[in-house]
Every structure is written in C-alpha cells, then in structure tokens.
C-alpha cells in the first residue's frame, strides 16, 4: 500500500465556500468572546475546609509514630472565571477540574518539549509560630504566571535569564503574559505567602495520565527551629486532579 496517497486523499478535502464565509464572519464577531484573564479566587471553601480538617486528624509519621500536625493546608484554585472552578468533594479528597487545554497546546509546541498538566492550584499554610514553609514536588515543577510590559518583543536571552519559557501577547498592547519555571522546590516565609502564587505542573505520559505517586512534601519550620512535615498525594481520576493527605 502506498501511504503517500494519504496526502493526496486528505488534501483533496476542501472547506465548503459557505463554511469559509460563515467562519470568517463568526471569527470577525469574536468581540463577543471574552479574553480570559486568569485570576486567583479561593476554590470552594468546602475544599479548603476539607483539607484543613484532614490536617488535624492524627496520622502515622514515617517512623510509624502517631502524630498530629500543628498546621493546616488550604488549597486555592486558579480559574478563568468564578463559575468554572469545579471542586467535587468526597469524604477523603478534593478534586480540581483540569481546564487548561489552551495552555497545554501552547506549551507542547514550546522549546523543551516537556509534557505537563497544569493544575492551577496553589497551597497556603496556616498555623502558630511558623517561620517558613518549603514545598517540594517529587515530579514536575512549580510554575508562576507572569505579566510584563515591553515596547518590543522580549529577547530570548532575557526570557531565559528570567526562566520564562512561554510568552503570549495581545497585538500592539505591549503587554506580555508568560510562564516562569520555579523548579521542583521553593521556600517561602510564612508572612509572605501571598506573594508567591505558584501553581503545579505535573508530568504526564503523553496521554494526559500522571504518575501514581506524585507527592508534594510540605515542610514547616517553626520559629523555635523545629519542623513538621506532611505529604500530599496528587492523584488523577478521569479529567480531575485530586489532592489527598498521605
């Protein structure tokens, strides 16, 4: 069989004239399509409360000792608008709907060919006498959405130095939106958590399936120098990402 004939066959398909015209008109009227500027909103409070309660439940630490953590973890979701956050809650875990197909598509064509699912979720710790928090992702990386202005397209050298790998821009606006890679770990002061809105990029197998054992290790250091840690297991069900204390 001559597989080169596939090209002849497929390129013999033509878009009907009427469709061409209809499409141009519809796209031309795209002013009705709003630009989705992502903004931070707290994911449903039940979601946050669920995780917080779970943190208070005694658990067995790595040495097999019964322990109760003295801090709570709150999760926040990033959404295109208030109506699109989907937090299906069960008694044991919190679900965050994946709604990042545009970003997936854009990233896939980008420089390093990495394959990530962007979860658009960030974490916040609450507790007494906490000095700093270190998050470590077992697989994948933390990323940050950044916006900057420039009169001309940013140079690739500058973007590399800033670890900004993907950039989009409204034509003529001089405003650029990009994705900065933070790495697989970062430490933040307790009082400055609001300044670090990092979300998770989790690798997948090419078919949007994430590994079974991706963990976020949360290590909290108290003012007296002691520390506590907790692992959060990241799981996947259908098209949702689930967080569960391990």
């Amino acid at each position: 069989m001559d597989f080169e004939k596939i090209k002849d066959a497929v390129t013999s398909i033509e878009m009907p004239k009427a469709m061409d015209e209809r499409m141009k008109e519809n796209i031309g009227n795209r002013k009705t399509v709003k630009v989705n500027h992502k903004k931070w909103i707290p994911a449903a409070s039940v979601f946050a409360i669920l995780l917080a309660i779970m943190m208070g439940i005694p658990y067995f630490n790595k040495n097999g000792e019964l322990q109760v953590a003295n801090f709570t973890i709150t999760a926040y979701a990033l959404s295109d608008d208030e109506n699109q956050v989907n937090t299906t809650i069960t008694s044991e875990k919190a679900a965050i709907e994946l709604a990042t197909e545009d970003r997936l598509g854009i990233v896939s064509i980008g420089g390093d060919g990495d394959r990530f699912i962007f979860t658009d979720v960030m974490l916040k710790i609450a507790g007494e006498q906490i000095d700093s928090i270190t998050y470590t992702l077992s697989e994948g990386k933390f990323i940050e959405d950044v916006t900057f202005t420039s009169t001309k397209p940013p140079s690739s050298e500058w973007l590399r130095s800033e670890r900004i790998y993907y950039v989009f821009s409204e034509p003529g606006s001089g405003v650029y939106e990009g994705i900065r890679h933070i790495g697989n770990t970062y430490t933040v002061s307790y009082n400055e958590q609001e300044n670090y809105k990092y979300t998770l990029a989790i690798p997948h197998d090419g078919n949007n399936v994430i590994p079974d054992d991706v963990i976020i290790n949360v290590n909290v250091t108290y003012s007296d120098g002691t520390s506590e840690q907790q692992d959060i297991l990241i799981m996947q069900e259908a098209h949702s990402i689930l967080l569960k204390l391990k």
Binding site: I27, N36, D102, I106, S108, I109, P171
Partner: peptide
C-alpha cells in the same frame, strides 16, 4: 482561530504558527 486571535502568541516563523494551530 478564535484562540489564535485572542491569545496572539508570538511565533518564530510561519511553520511555528502552523504547528501551533495544528496543536490547538
């Protein structure tokens, strides 16, 4: 196409643009 016009990504050349559209 609407995504293209809304996002207006920056491309290196027409091949990059085409690949982006195919990806989306």
């Amino acid at each position: 196409f609407i995504t293209y016009l809304t996002k207006s990504p920056t491309f290196n050349d027409s091949e990059h643009e085409k690949a982006w559209l195919i990806t989306i």
